[in-house]
Design a binder for these strands. Structure first.
Lengths: 208, 208
DNA sequence: CAACATACAAACAACGCTGTATGTTAGTTT
DNA sequence: AAACTAACATACAGCGTTGTTTGTATGTTG
């Protein structure tokens, strides 16, 4: 039954696809490796050959998602007179559009959102947390730049603006993913971002 | 070993307390009933006497949380010239303050946020979803009222305003709970709500 | 003060699942 | 072509957990 390298890669890919499907439908906790194997048309032996255990399988599922190029965005923001708000709004919109069109991403993120992060999968959630921290710092720096450029409404601080943006996007995504995707996340997200960034730059009377 | 009714109630309470502690520390999926029993100072027999199974135990944990009186809020909003924004902002603030001071609520909501909702606990998450739906409708109606009163900035629709409010609060809470409560949710939430409601009422130029 | 129900503890049976060890076949290398 | 190894399938041992059942002592009720 020895396969060629290319065939093995394909087997691995099949397992990942099956895991995505099974974990999404039954939940990571209640799906057995046998379930995944059956869905992939292999035995558990194949899975344990390609992956150390279930946590590793989930991790590789997560790793299979191409991540947006953040250094590229950072470079865009570096320019002296960069229009920070325009860049951030576009990046947010693009992220939502990516999510809206990539069904794999939808399922995998759903799996991660629903899975119990306290036990064996703590490594994954920690990594997400680290990423979140980096994003937060980058966002705050970007808004600080906008503030220096005099473009940030006085009622916002870089930190509060960054927090709000994060909360909205996170709330939007988790709501959409966990709740049956009952609305058009691309268009609703676009509107929300537009309104949010409008308030960042508006010279409205400061709150209260 | 037969206990009096009052003692039995107390045993039940002890079990709930222990479940809260153990599930919070180890996660619902990876904590055994034995773990909970040990922490409560009883055997699994006692747990299965008071609760049908683990899902029921979690459900009762959820039910043990006193829910804010929503009909009371609704009545406040009914008044012809009610200041919708003031009421909503206050309600949101009070909810965050309640969460900030009630450690049981923090732990139980954390448990629910982290637990896998796809399997045995689907009943709980469905109930939460139903509640969310009701909230959403109530919020939208409230913002519609504000719109009729001419208080809602033209760049917002009742629906978009309600959605945004929900996303912010949800993002805020889940971020705080899942991420080690690393900031002052009461004060940051208060600020965020203030800014958000300021943008609802501001007569800023419409977005773009 | 029986008789019954309640509130558990303790023992049990059974299963599902995991990880690993071993077997087997077919590529790959020399 | 022999030797080796990659890519699995199969078989196995074993554990942890669950739900249930049985036992039992003590309140509770008529």
């Amino acid at each position: 039954m020895r396969r060629t390298k290319a065939e093995a890669k394909e087997t691995r890919q099949q397992i990942l696809l099956a895991a995505e499907k099974v974990f999404y439908e039954k939940g990571v906790a209640h799906a057995s490796m046998e379930d995944v194997a059956r869905a992939a048309g292999v035995t558990r032996g194949a899975i344990y050959w390609h992956f150390a255990n279930r946590a590793d399988l989930v991790l590789e599922l997560y790793n299979s998602l191409p991540m947006p190029q953040e250094d590229l965005i950072a470079r865009e923001l570096e320019a002296e007179n960069a229009d920070v708000f325009a860049v951030l709004e576009r990046v947010g919109r693009e992220w939502l559009e990516l999510l809206a069109t990539d069904e794999h991403r939808q399922r995998i993120l759903s799996i991660l959102l629903r899975c119990d992060t306290s036990g064996e999968f703590s490594a994954i959630s920690e990594r997400q947390n680290d990423l979140d921290d980096e994003h937060m710092q980058a966002l705050e720096a970007a808004f600080a730049k906008a503030e220096k450029q005099g473009k940030l409404c006085a009622c916002w601080t870089p930190r509060s603006a960054a927090s709000m943006l994060r909360w909205v996007i996170k709330g939007l995504c988790s709501e959409w993913l966990l709740f049956g995707r009952r609305f058009d996340i691309a268009s609703e997200g676009r509107d929300a971002l537009r309104r949010l960034f409008a308030t960042y730059s508006s010279h409205a009377p400061s709150a209260r």
